[in-house]
Amino acid sequence: MVSSMAETWRRHREAYLLLALPLAIIVIFRVLTVGGAFWISVVRYGPRGAPFVGLANYAATLQDDLFWRSMFNTLYYSVGVVPLGIAVSLGLSQLIFNLGRRTQMFYKAAFYLPMVVSGVVMSLVWLWMFDPVYGLLNWLFQQVGLEPLLWLRSPKTAMPSLILMAVATGQGASIVLLTASMGSIPDPLYESARVDGANGWHEFRHITVPLLRPTILYLLIMGTIGSFQVFNSIYVMTSGGPYHATETAVYLLYTYAFQMLNFSRASAIGVILAVILALVSALQYRFVARGSVEY
């Protein structure tokens, strides 16, 4: 046994040595902390020890009105941002796709540029544009004869404002992906459809969209995962307000952990969030992947 281990080591020494440091970093910071998350969520973590409390933190979380409020807000944000974003980028991709190569690159770069700008910068400039008194959006509204809005300052419009910002600035990567996928749809499909008298909308609806299904599924899952974890814009722009209208799950986790220093409750929220995300991704996968068209 020992000699065979020594033999294995001797034969694969270099592979193990190259793998050792990267894997150690992953295991220490990413694997052990998963165990840590579960452990902290079943104890009452405090400065004077951590007594085991079973599922009490989970029970308290599930009885917390603010938790349900934050789940609703997270869902609201996600359902606003993801399908709308996919619809917009599908439409724009279709428009871009028929253009010449250089024009395509120009528009793609224009749509992608905001994506390399940090969430904090975006949040600051939009906060300024949303300002009810001095902001550009209310000035625009007045120019076209619309009533000015309170935007982020009213519980009713705060979440839609955040959704507007996310949709308006976040489509670059989706468009690059979708146009790339459109390029792989074989031409004869369109030619034969045209022979059958299909118009542009029919082609888009019955050929392009069904054949883009794998890419759309990918955007749906990644978009949902991303939007469920929204934090930066909430922190910078609204701090979860007004009246908890934009308090999302991750923001709530942040307040529990770093403002109330209730690490155990925060960890329970984190575990619940991870489970929900896994379930949502699996559901979307089953729901959308089923019926994928092969070509």
Binding site: L23, R30, L32, A37, Q229, L253, A266, S267, G270, A274
Partner: peptide, 23 residues
Amino acid sequence: AFWIVILTMMIPGQATLVPMYLL
């Protein structure tokens, strides 16, 4: 080793935020 890499990639960062901070 490969599965460790794949699985850790799928865990949302927020789930392990508190233990990371304490570590």
